[in-house]
Nucleic acid binder design. Sequence first.
DNA 1: CATCGGACCTGTTAGC
DNA 2: TGCTAACAGGTCCGAT
Length: 275
Amino acid sequence: MRPPSMPELPEVETTRRGLAPHLEGRRVTTVTLRRPDLRWPIPEAVCVRLPGQRIEAVERRAKYLLLRTAAGSAVWHLGMSGVMRVLPADTPVAVHDHVEVGLDDGRLLRFTDPRRFGSLLWQPVGETHALLAGLGPEPLSDAFTGDTLFAASRGRKAAVKPFLMDQAVVVGVGNIYAAEALFEAGIRPTTPAGRVTRERYQRLAAAVKRILGCAIERGGTTLRDFLNPDGLPGYFEQELFVYGREGEACRVCASALKSLRLGQRATVWCPRCQR
DNA sequence: CATCGGACCTGTTAGC
DNA sequence: TGCTAACAGGTCCGAT
């Protein structure tokens, strides 16, 4: 039904928290590209600049993970199916293992991504990569509020769901969490963004923060298993109200959930709870 | 500028 | 049962 461990923002944050204690303070010894054609070709700078650098911090911006060093940052996106793990140096290589970063403690950071929607970029120190430059506020920060959404939406004719998924409006809200947040806020996904009231945007922003925060907390509970090859924690499926439940009964009012494609994305909502 | 459709990729699932 | 086709999804990019 659902691909396992699809990285939405909570998964990326969980990955960051899991990697940080193993990477911060470590020095990079080697960079090995087994498959340099990810979403974009991996820039040569990653191989040239990263070796020898000490990893100062593991950071996150939107769904990008940044390994920060004095020379710059390796910027990773997990795409649809990417996984990053710290493993013993002698761990056998599998088909979809594309990049390896050797560490001075003898272990390695391995990037695995079957669909290769992921990417690895280089951001020189003091610069902001073009792909990060146009991003909207972090959903869990104080910079993101209902007023933010209200202001950004005036005059917009696009439906509120794709509007909420626009990375220039707010980052990190993917298809699953957009559907769930709109349900929690009682807003129909097809409503033109410019016609949603300020009050309803306040409810929507609150829902986004609550749902993402909750999912990150859940991810945190599996951190101790982070080095396990089983990989990232999955979603808490039993708590989904609409995503993937088209035709099924609404968990609140029992109405049959409706669905359509909005901006090429599966969209499910409750015709009674969401107006 | 806002919006829309196409492209990328492959494991899984539905349909024949 | 075996094969093929559709589907899933984030996000960039080019066209309108």
